[in-house]
Amino acid sequence: MSTVMTKAINLKLVRNENERSEPEVEKEVVYDTKGLNLWYGETHALKNINMDIKEKEVTAIIGPSGCGKSTYLKTLNRMVELVPIVKTSGQITYKGKNILDKSFRVEDLRTQVGMVFQKANPFPKSIYENIAYGPKIHGIKNKKILDEIVEKSLRGAFIWDELKDRLNDNAYGLSGGQQQRLCIARCLAVEPNVILMDEPTSALDPKSTLRIEELVQELKKDYAIVIVTHNMQQAARISDKTAFFLNGEIIEYDKTDHIFNNPTDERTGDYISGRFG
């Protein structure tokens, strides 16, 4: 079973490699993590994480449950602080500034870094109001501009055609997959530089999952995307780079095809071929 799966992944990767053969332009580093440690109370959840994340790339983070992958993702927009007992050391530089510095305003960070959650979490408002929420709190009041942003964001998330006639309906009437794409659109409306995705398809059916994956491929033209996933095929399909986390440490971080075809660390290979996790 596992060998068949790996083979399927390999085939896909070969194809990907062909597409990627054009010469690489040096991409700008968005996030640079150096020596990050994080504790939940007494639990040492992230250990000496070093990792850089570049623009216009999809970076996948994989690893078994409880390995710290979601924690790391939530550290990138400091959502992790919502748990009051969290302590950190080390630094994460975002565009040249250390975001873990107490003087760094987390609201600024979160304005520039969007996040999509494991379970779609639209607000109990209309579709229109869900999208307009972000621009409104950031000071855009002009109705015409808001209309344009709503259309642009929904188009960006490929659901404009499905939803354009029901913008005033409650977002809770949408299907799970639509809700998740609405949440992506909501995040696009603020025009972030980075989009963090925390297992965005784990609650979705295969068809909706595929649509989100296509969307991710489209979005990476403009954004840096970091996606946490427990679905290895998904990581292989959509990411440029993959980091493998285990027990709060990065075991391996490299180009995705390298990780999946030729892992340096034995544990990476074991995990990918389904021997644990």
């Binding site: 305003r105 609201e107 600024d108 304005t111 520039q112 621009p135 709190i137 950031h138 000071g139 855009i140 501009i145 344009e148 942003i149 642009k152 603020v190 025009e191 403009d222």
Partner: peptide, 20 residues
Amino acid sequence: MATKYMDAELVGKRMSSRVR
């Protein structure tokens, strides 16, 4: 990205008063 609607500088300026 075609048109930019969000003016980063303006948003940053407003943020100070919002946080206050």
